[in-house]
Simulated scan of single mutants.
Amino acid sequence: MAAVTAAMVKELREMTGAGMMDCKKALAATDGDMDAAVDFLREKGLAGAQKKAGRIAAEGIVDVCVSDDAKKAVVLEVNAETDFVAKNEKFRTYVGEVAAQALKTSAGTTEEFLNEKWELDPSLTVAEKLSSMISIIGENMSIRRFAKVEEADGCVVSYIHAGGKIGVLVDVVSDVVNDEIKEMAKNVAMQVAALHPKYTSDKEVDADYLAKEREILLAQIKNDPKEASKPEKVIMGMIEGRIKKELKEICLLDQPYVKAADGKQSVAAYVAEVAKANNAKVSIKGFVRFETGEGLEKKSENFAEEVAKQMSGKMI
């Protein structure tokens, strides 16, 4: 077997744009034959993928996959460079396949997940399949994150908003699981998507966070001469009142239920109402909410300028 040198790896990388480790693997698999190594990379869909790796991938979709018994579910985000590709059926089919595998994976991190075998073609890893799709679709892509929820004593219900812009999982503990309970959970998931709560209930709110909020509110009051002149007991009451109001905004169960007819019923009261109607003991244990591209830098482009660059033969 011919020795694979750094120079050979460098040459193959320059020829194909594939990653360094992929080039090394290709040369090892083809006994150092450069032409065969190029074919190897093309067959794996790896040639050309690396050239796109520097592009910002902040568009894409969020998808979910739920087990048949609704005891386990996963939500994940796969990014691409443009919204156009995010709407492409080939891309969306691929994301669905990734979600189906993520539901079964024992990987605890995205990195571990990328290194496992691609179930639909065990000759590839998940990362290699991703590289293949990058070459096929022609944009940089990334499997950014995933989260799994399992509930043995109830069910997990999902909701996808705006075709994949937002994905939500809601963990429901219940001694009765029927269509009414699942519909309630779906409505709660829609609430999470729309109002973006930070916590399930006020019991989850960190004490340090509350202390900091009280400190900020006190400073605000002291900076207002009219409010600062009030008795300390009144000021403390004002602070607690504002804290309570804020918790109603950031805690799911304390939020006004958006589908309530009078606009006054809380999510907790809605859940209790459905539980009573079904003679069930129900609680919302938690939720996961993914929004496409949140926290990522998005590339801002002038489309006319981009076309002009392409027409003039300049690289973008």
Rank of each mutant, 00 (worst) to 15 (best):
V4E: 08
T5Y: 03
A6V: 07
M8V: 02
M8S: 12
M15A: 15
G17P: 08
K24H: 12
L27A: 12
T30R: 10
D31P: 09
D31Y: 10
D35I: 11
R42Q: 14
R42T: 07
E43T: 15
A49I: 07
A53I: 05
A57L: 02
A58I: 04
A58T: 07
I61Q: 01
V64A: 00
V64N: 07
V64K: 02
C65P: 00
S67Y: 06
S67I: 03
V75S: 11
N79R: 03
F84C: 11
V85D: 01
K87S: 14
K87A: 14
T93L: 10
V95P: 08
G96W: 05
V98S: 02
L103V: 12
A107L: 12
E112I: 06
F113T: 10
K117H: 07
W118L: 06
L120V: 07
L120W: 00
L124F: 11
S135L: 01
I137A: 05
G138L: 02
M141P: 04
F146L: 07
V149I: 10
V156Y: 06
I160F: 07
H161S: 03
A162G: 02
G167I: 10
V168N: 02
L169T: 11
S174Q: 07
V176K: 15
V177G: 02
N178W: 09
N178C: 06
D179F: 13
E180L: 11
I181D: 04
K182A: 13
E183C: 00
A189S: 11
A189L: 06
Q191K: 01
V192P: 03
A193F: 07
K198M: 14
R214P: 04
L217W: 01
Q220Y: 12
I221G: 04
D224T: 01
P225F: 06
E227C: 00
A228L: 12
K233M: 15
V234Y: 12
M238W: 03
M238R: 04
G241T: 10
R242A: 09
I243G: 00
K244M: 09
E249V: 11
L252F: 05
D254G: 13
Q255V: 11
V258H: 05
A261L: 12
A261H: 01
K264R: 04
K264L: 03
K264I: 13
A269K: 14
Y270G: 10
V271S: 07
A277P: 03
N279C: 00
A280L: 09
G286C: 09
G286N: 15
F287Y: 11
V288M: 04
R289P: 02
E291T: 13
G295A: 12
G295P: 05
L296R: 05
L296P: 02
E297C: 05
K298Q: 13
K298C: 09
N302F: 06
E306S: 13
V307Y: 13
A308K: 12
A308M: 14
K309N: 15
Q310Y: 10
G313K: 10
I316P: 00
